[in-house]
């Protein structure tokens, strides 16, 4: 019985988690794009952009791990991102 109850509790928690996602998924997508842009502006050279890295970019480099990671991931998946947006923007 206890196991049953805990399973039900778990499923409710998961359900709640899913709902929370529903209130942030587009925001998260937007955030990643903002971070990607920020890194690109300062350090686009890392992904092959012809612009040389800026002085400021190098200076801030130690603190931009997350942004750079996102930038590199984005640059790798750039060829096939369309499908993701059908989900994020909720076509259905």
């Amino acid at each position: 019985m206890k196991e049953r109850l805990s399973k039900i509790k778990e499923s409710f928690l998961l359900f709640a988690k899913g709902l929370r996602e529903r209130s942030t998924s587009a925001l998260e997508a937007e955030l990643k794009e903002l971070e990607n842009a920020f890194a690109l502006i300062l350090l686009g050279a890392l992904t092959g952009m012809p612009a040389p890295p800026s002085y400021l970019g190098i200076k801030l480099l130690p603190f931009l791990e997350r942004e750079i990671r996102i930038m590199i991931c984005r640059s790798e998946s750039l060829g096939d991102i369309f499908a993701d947006w059908f989900d994020i923007l909720d076509f259905g």
Partner: peptide, 20 residues
């Protein structure tokens, strides 16, 4: 412009962190 972008990033992060 960079400051603007940075503020937006921080704002978005805190909004998401508040909910998740």
């Amino acid at each position: 412009k960079l400051k603007e972008l940075r503020l937006k990033i921080l704002e978005r992060r805190s909004q998401i962190a508040h909910i998740k």
